[in-house]
Design a protein around this nucleic acid. Structure first.
Lengths: 234, 234
DNA sequence: CGAGCGCTTGACCGGCGTCAACACCCGTGG
DNA sequence: CCACGGGTGTTGACGCCGGTCAAGCGCTCG
């Protein structure tokens, strides 16, 4: 977990008009007039796995659109242990709470190689008041975040360890290759589901033994789903 | 749990200008010009304990500002068991997700006597695009909802049963009387913290025996906090 | 090739779930 | 007014899931 200075993450200035995933993101339906309202540069940034995007309570320069990779939101509980609130994926807005308060409510850490665009707060504010297009999009992003939080709680924090892991695997499937799913360090996975790393390891091994999943690498990060039914019904 | 027809909940039309808790809610800083934009009646509604405010997936007529009482948001999990996502209190917006989708993502049920105002969706939409005041307030309400969800997860779904219950009691304290806290049916409390009702009951009894709390009624719904330290450190 | 980190696996134990009996509160009806 | 019944809360006995502690393995990288 090596903190990365913002400067070293900077990759250049984005051209949003030609963004590869524009249909997913905040700027999806901006028109030329809207783009004209952007008077500050939108920074293109990259973080390696484990890189710190921002920390809890930090003053925000902007919000981030996640273009590639996955990001975990972490809160330190009163007793010092770390709890992973939820995981964001491509198209999600990282740090959306800064729109309301100017600060970040949790810590954001890259789970793998991550690429984000940082949109300055004042750009967001002026766009959200002057462009109904962005205003609507933003509302959808708030909704997406809230629903994501509720789903995370309902899916990954109820029932047996086995059931939680199955839900987790289904949730972490790749959109493009639904037969593959990604995992993380057993400790992180434990912090996501409220389990200990040994329990996570045991349940993963158990699913492999029962041929519900099959490892695709030697680091235990990528698995193929062999028996979807077993996972859904568990 | 008796479903209540909307008609029977209707109490009249609200005059928002003279609302008792206006400083808490969405309309806090509207001016006369903004009020002029409201072209549909805002309904004043009341629900008894257990009353259904809306159900999962239902098409929304409006969003609700919670003036009095508490509301639980419930999701039915795939295996039929009910999970309580979180609890809303006075000042919160019930069903805010309808702003983005026009539908409700979960079921909302009154935990005690509840009073709400229903603001029609089109009133919300026209106000949020034409009044920067409401636009800002709305953003704060989205943030409040998201933070509430994250806090709920972090506080009530980690650690031992004892720790969860202590956090729960602290979270359910009355703002005006911080030495008192409200509880609910042991089953509901279990569904909120991911515990069985027997476990909840045992831990409550245990805290009473240790004189951390003391019952104020015979139904086990209202307690006085006698030793705050015990609750915080547990 | 060796050191170190993360993953796996085993043995053991404690906390919570399960099942069951019982107490208490309250509404109902005689 | 009391008798009764159902719903809810409490308490006990017991078993199992998952936490704890510890040892060993495999991968990766210096």
């Amino acid at each position: 977990m090596i903190p990365i200075h913002v400067e070293s993450a900077w990759k250049g200035t984005s051209d949003c008009r030609s963004c590869g995933i524009r249909d997913l993101v905040l700027f999806a339906d901006l028109n030329e007039e809207d783009f004209g309202l952007i008077h500050a540069p939108i920074d293109d940034m990259a973080f390696p796995s484990g890189g710190l995007i921002y920390s809890e309570g930090e003053k925000a320069l902007g919000v981030f659109t996640l273009r590639q990779g996955m990001v975990k939101l972490v809160r330190s509980t009163s007793d010092g242990r770390e709890r992973i609130i939820r995981v964001l994926r491509a198209g999600d807005v990282v740090g959306i709470e800064a729109m309301a308060t100017g600060h970040f409510d949790s810590e954001a850490v890259a789970l793998n190689n991550v690429m984000v665009c940082r949109i300055p707060l004042d750009v967001m504010h002026s766009l959200s008041t002057h462009s109904p297009r962005l205003h609507n999009r933003l509302m959808q992003k708030w909704h997406q975040a809230l629903k994501g939080a509720d789903d995370w709680l309902a899916d990954l924090n109820f029932g047996t360890a086995r059931r939680r892991l199955c839900k987790f695997i289904l949730k972490m499937r790749f959109d493009e290759q639904p037969d593959q799913s990604s995992m993380f360090s057993r400790e992180d996975m434990g912090a996501m589901m409220g389990l200990k790393l040994e329990t996570v390891s045991r349940e993963v091994s158990s699913l492999v033994r029962e041929k519900a999943i099959e490892p695709l690498d030697k680091m235990g990060r990528l698995y193929r789903i062999k028996n979807e039914k077993l996972l859904i019904e568990a």
